[in-house]
Amino acid sequence: FEAKWDHASTLKKVIDAVKDLIGDTSWDCTNTGMSLQSMDSSHVALVHVLLKSEGFESYRCDRNVSMGISLNSMAKVLKCAGNDDSVTLRHESESSVVNFAFESHKEERVSEFELKLMNIDTEHLGIPETEYDSIIKMPSADLRRTCADLSQFGDSVTISCAKSDVRFETSGDIGTGNVRLSARGSSDKPETEIAIEMINPVSLTFALKYLNFFTKAAPLSDTVKLCMSNNHPLCVEFPMPEVGYIRYYLAPKIDE
């Protein structure tokens, strides 16, 4: 297995976006790309990352391999790469290590690191194809700010989607808060658009703690998609055009 990115920045951001939610995980490498699927320890949230082979500078995977890695260790290794350095990952069949090589674009500095692989029992979940009742596309910075703001007032947020607006509400000991975002088009700046596709109205409640973990992916993508159906986990997708995506799933809070 050998994969090379032109710039380390994307991989650094991907790891930063998921490492606080899931500790150790397996990267599944096939000839179509690298992916991981992992739940947090409480089985409330799930992360699914796909890095498509087309998004790499070069990519080769002769035999499918599952590499168990501590994401904190991977973050440490990637700290040693400059944002514009190229990154090459190499793993030989049956080897218990993965190699990282970083090269500056003027080629005057090359650094190499070897990370021990771990034995990880991965439990993959089958995520059913879902026709969601409401899909909201919005700037990822708006979601990050909304979740951070409301976290000051409560632990949970109720997201309600109607035809032309989406409402985020919370309440706690010191008071209540809500943020309403209205659909707005923007032909010249599609990344600032708020688009609401509503088949049925939805109202779901989620723990803000997890949403704040998810919005760590905001630096990867200008836009985010919230896919919701009543009594169903929320899917939060950060698309990375040409590269792949990060999808987070979050189980709702339900009436006792």
């Binding site: 739940m39 409480s42 089985h43 409330v44 949230a45 799930l46 439990e123 993959h124 979940l125 089958g126 995520i127 059913p128 949970s156 409640t205 723990a207 169903h232 986990p233 799933y249 189980a251 709702p252 809070k253 339900i254 009436d255 006792e256």
Partner: peptide, 14 residues
């Protein structure tokens, strides 16, 4: 009063 559900209530092991 709401309680946190688990993903395992919705998704099956693959």
């Amino acid at each position: 009063k709401t309680v946190q559900s688990s993903l395992m209530n919705f998704f099956k092991k693959a």
